[in-house]
Design a protein around this nucleic acid. Sequence first.
DNA 1: CAGTGAGCGAGCTTCCGCTTGACTT
Length: 849
Amino acid sequence: MKALVIVESPTKAKTIKKFLPKGYSVDSSMGHIRDLPANAKEIPAKYKKEKWANIGINIDKDFEPLYVISADKKKVVDKLKKQLSDVDELILATDEDREGEGISWHLLEVLKPKMPVKRMVFHEITEDAIKKALLNFREIDMNLVNAQETRRIMDRLAGYTISPLLWKKLAPGLSAGRVQSVAVEVLVQRERERMRFVTSSYWDILAQLNKSGDKVSFKSELARVNDTRIATGKDFSSETGLLDTKSKVLLLNEKEAQELVETLKSAKWSVQAIEKTNQKRSPAPPFITSTLQQEANRKYGFSAKETMQVAQKLYENGYITYMRTDSTNLSQQAIEAARNAVVSIYGKDYLFHTVRSYNKKAKGAQEAHEAIRPAGNQFKTPQETGLSGKEFKLYDLIWKRTMATQMADALLNFTNAEIVAQNNGTSAMFKSSGKQIVFPGFFRAYVEGSDDPEAALEDQESMLPELFVGDTINAKNIEAKGHETKPPARFTEATLVKALEKEGVGRPSTYASIISTVVDRGYVKKEGNALIPSFMAFAVAGLLEKHFPDLVDTKFTSEMEGKLDEIAAGEHEMLKYLESYFKGEKGLLNQIQIQEAQIDPAEARKIVLPIRDLEGLQVLVGKFGPYVQTTDLAETASTSLPIDLYPGDVTQAKLKELLQDSKDGPSSLGKDPETGDDIFVLNGRFGPYVQVGLGEDKKVKPKRGSLLKGMKPEDLDLPTALKLLDMPRLVGTHPESGKEIRAGVGRFGPYVVHDGTFASLAAADNVLEVELPRALELLTKAANRKSRGSAPIQELGKYPEEKGDEIQVLTGRFGPYIKWGKLNVKIPKGVEPEAITRQEAIDLIDAKK
DNA sequence: CAGTGAGCGAGCTTCCGCTTGACTT
């Protein structure tokens, strides 16, 4: 008896193959094998004329979806079909969640097997689990499949009806969807909060104290004056910058704080109260996709995408379990491995007295996989893996976090002391606190947000000397200190993922791509770690809030999930739900028609900015990006905003300045020594640039040069401008060839070039300053790399004979490959590139074609 | 590539979720 088992990922296929009896072959579907057509190219000619072709769902015929197998999935399907002709049984072993069940059903629909079909599910890839699963087959759960299809259809209906409305009302190419629109909304709301924020300042007093006769000093902070609490940042309203008047507080300004310091200098200090408390700390749950992305970002500054790429590598090479998961569950095997390792590395005292399990489910979690942890039933320590760089860092993080879950709680001791200073009727109460780690427990392996647990342990301790009520205290140093309230921070990739996950928006497999989507659509730019929404994001968020409030509300997803759960449980009919969602009185179709008529494009293009005093000025988004316009109808003036100006930086003064600059025309930086013409800094579609003259003579192309990254137009001086105009700049001549070496900025950043060989500059180099020796150094390195990388291992002659392209075997960045004209074919593992024959190479080339 | 805020208008843009391969600078 022969059986074919289909799973979702090739790595998984390889692993479970080991646990299956003889006669079982395993292959993978690589995720979904078919889907609604993504674009016009994917719509079959037969359906092109249908009015629902673009949406890919026949609205009038029970929402029948049009599924297509995309070009890259065609190969997968063909391969599976071929293998199927050779077996007696098909076993569908895709993930046991909504999408996994859907994939199995699609496989069934596409492969149309003639032999018996079974559905197999397992939650961990261990021999036990697989063996058990082989004894417990079930049928495909059509209710679950329906839930998946409903999800798919709803997302398509919303995305492909609302996006076109944005094209008509705002700008072509824009997009809206259940997930991305929530992400944009969240970012815009935070940005508005920041813009409304009014900074306040307050003062407090810090004292360095010590016990009489004791050398060790400790810090103390003013808390109350004559029984009235001192104002801190929390007491201010973020929108007015004024004190929230609810509670009675004392707000000190600089002068008052200094006066108080003087009074305190001759005060009598003594301990008024001491309070000691013990606290336990428990380790965080094992990693899931979202928390891994957050921690890797916090500790190492990895982007979500970077983390997933590194994790994928670790997974493929057998270091960790599956990296796209929403379950914090650890298998029995993992718990045992962790507990054994804890005992052998940290000792028995560090083992938690019993198995610690985490079963709190995240909102909307499907839990088809385990938590992310070191693979196997014996964890390799990070050192034992032999990994390096990012892979080591990420494995280390996962190992530590997993270990910590089975380690003992940490025990902390807190001491809070109240110290009173009295002088001439003024009584000031200071507070000091100390923290001591009584037992580090899991802190030994893992401290959230910290890179080095051992160092963090020391950091966390802040000792107070032994104090008793009534002790006399000396003040060594008393200082007034000013503070300013800060607006809420912008979202980072990590905090955005966290916020979305909390609302159940998005899935582990999509968190990283949500960020790329909103960046690609021009809704968001990444600056350092911060995500900054653009004017277009403000326009889209404004329009959706007003006209499609459901789409930007996080409740939308949770309500949908509720309905999908009902469908999955067989309690609700899929069609009825889709009918009401799309065609009901308040349904999407009706909404689209109403809003189509109602939304005035001219209004929608106006950006609503939460800034006071913007009177007379309006920012709009237009065909060529954001611009500012005066609202005075008698005499309107307008000008584009520079590309690096984002809503968060807008002030009335800035906008006025831009309008004034555009009215005055550009001012000259100075004269070009060659032509005597004026040199201007101008603002173009691609950012600021310098130009000789204003280009009045349309026939002659003026000399131009872009400003380099990070250069500010207002800071530019004439010598720098001349250098920019001269790019790519002559660095010198090569001592051997005598040919010139130039430096410039290209598509991949700053470079030096000599005789057609390019070498990228390092971050520390400056294109405008780079000198000949450094250029030669870089060029020699590049030349060496080139000759090593592209030296062919084998030349196998032309194909077809004589007139075709040469077949070459080469080593590239990703291993050996065959090059034939424009086509590159990877050499399969196990095949020696040195020994490959001409015929084998031709076979591989043909297979690829 | 280059500073505008209106015009002729074919055919296209766009969703979310599951996966890896190709890229050989």
